[in-house]
Simulated scan of single mutants.
Amino acid sequence: MNGISVQTLVVSLAIVAAGFLGAYLLFHAVRWLGRKADQGRFQIDGILLRILGPPMSVLVALGSVNYALYRIPQVQEQFGEWEGAQRALLILTGTWILASLVKNLIREYGLPLAHRTDTDIDERVIRLLDLTVVYVIWIAGILIALRELGIEVTAFLASLGIAGLAVALAAKTILSNVLAGVTLTADRNFRVGDRIEVGDFIGDVLEINLHKTVIRTRNNEIVMIPNDVLGKEVIINHMLPEQKTRIELTIGVAYGTDLDRATSLLQALLRTSDRILSTPPPEVNVTTLGDHAIVLQVLLWIDAPRGKRAVRDDVYRRALSRFAEAGIEIPFPQRVVQITEGPRDET
């Protein structure tokens, strides 16, 4: 076996097996202790145990592999030919442990705190932090390991900068959507659950993701709008500054109708609706003298923007019934066609 004794090889493999077994047992023991700590008075103990569990298990496993390899003289000679190889390996191991520790810390401690806030802006920041910090740690660890191996990292950094610029240009739309999503989430005039109108779409905001906003339309359709599009569009929020919303209706009555009586009938039926608010009071105004009818404008307020069509339908149906009972005519367009005879041909 290339000069490696069977005894040395068996002992090294036994050390590796023992190390992985110990890492497995340590991982599950820490998880069990974390669940026990969650039931105690201080939940921070359980959080810390869950954070430290995976890195500690990885450290035990990698430590056993490292020790097992360096027990073999031939492996030591191979690593000795490349100066700094051992330090580079230890640095990469430490980078792995640190990245796992930070990632678990953010997920176990940062996300629960973000969930307790009124808006999800903190949650977005935490998720971005979770993504970027781990990459930064790994890049820093790799650069330090390369330096320990005697590799010049200046040219590598320059190439990395050029590559980063190219990636940033290629991901311009994605970055634009992410920044717009953070801005929308921080905006107090735009919240999950609001009914908004954007372009041809009217619907309720279901969620604001990192790159798109999801709304459910009145037709129960899911529409996903890129955040950078929302940042450029005019957004009408039907639930701000408050949910109270005005509805405008028009009803035509025939010329010669007693307008005071028609107004009283409309005011009376508007007062009997549960959805129509008494403050501000409903209004009935003459808005147009049309070519076939006097057009009455009805302005009323309801408690929420949802259900406008139902309220409009109810008012029209009851107005039609009440006007019919009172003998008030709602005319339809009429056109008078006059036929005249042309001059007779006496020839």
Rank of each mutant, 00 (worst) to 15 (best):
K172L: 12
I126R: 03
G141V: 02
R147T: 00
G46V: 03
I208Q: 08
I235A: 06
R35C: 00
V16P: 01
L129M: 14
I247C: 10
E341P: 07
L13W: 11
V198W: 00
R188Q: 09
L259C: 04
P305I: 02
I47Y: 07
R275Y: 13
T250H: 14
L69G: 09
A88L: 07
L52Q: 01
R41H: 07
A145I: 02
T250P: 01
K232I: 01
N2F: 14
Q76C: 13
S64V: 07
L146E: 00
E77V: 10
S5D: 01
R275N: 13
I174W: 12
G150Q: 02
R127I: 08
A29Y: 03
R195C: 02
T263Y: 00
I196G: 06
G203A: 05
G203S: 12
E83V: 14
E81G: 11
L157D: 00
D314C: 00
T154R: 09
R218H: 02
L13I: 07
E81L: 15
I144N: 10
R246L: 02
F156T: 15
W96D: 12
P281W: 06
Y135K: 04
V6H: 02
T279K: 13
I330K: 12
L52G: 08
A186Y: 12
R218A: 09
T257M: 02
V134K: 11
R35K: 14
D274M: 11
L26T: 06
Q338M: 05
A17S: 14
D187I: 07
G256S: 03
D345S: 08
P343T: 11
I330L: 10
Y109K: 14
N209C: 04
S176F: 01
R216H: 01
D122G: 07
I276M: 03
A155R: 15
I91P: 06
L289E: 10
G256H: 10
L13P: 04
G3I: 06
Q338C: 03
Q297T: 09
I4Y: 06
V182L: 15
G290I: 12
F20I: 12
G3V: 06
Y109L: 15
L300Q: 11
Q7F: 15
L146C: 04
W32C: 00
L169Y: 10
V75Q: 05
D228Y: 11
P333K: 15
H211Q: 05
S5G: 15
I196Y: 05
W32V: 06
L59A: 12
S278H: 14
V167Y: 09
I162L: 15
T213K: 04
K308Y: 03
L206S: 14
G19R: 00
P343F: 05
A186R: 12
E197P: 03
R195W: 08
V10W: 08
V229P: 05
R116I: 08
V234R: 09
K212C: 08
G342M: 08
W82Y: 11
P241R: 08
L179E: 00
P281K: 13
A319C: 02
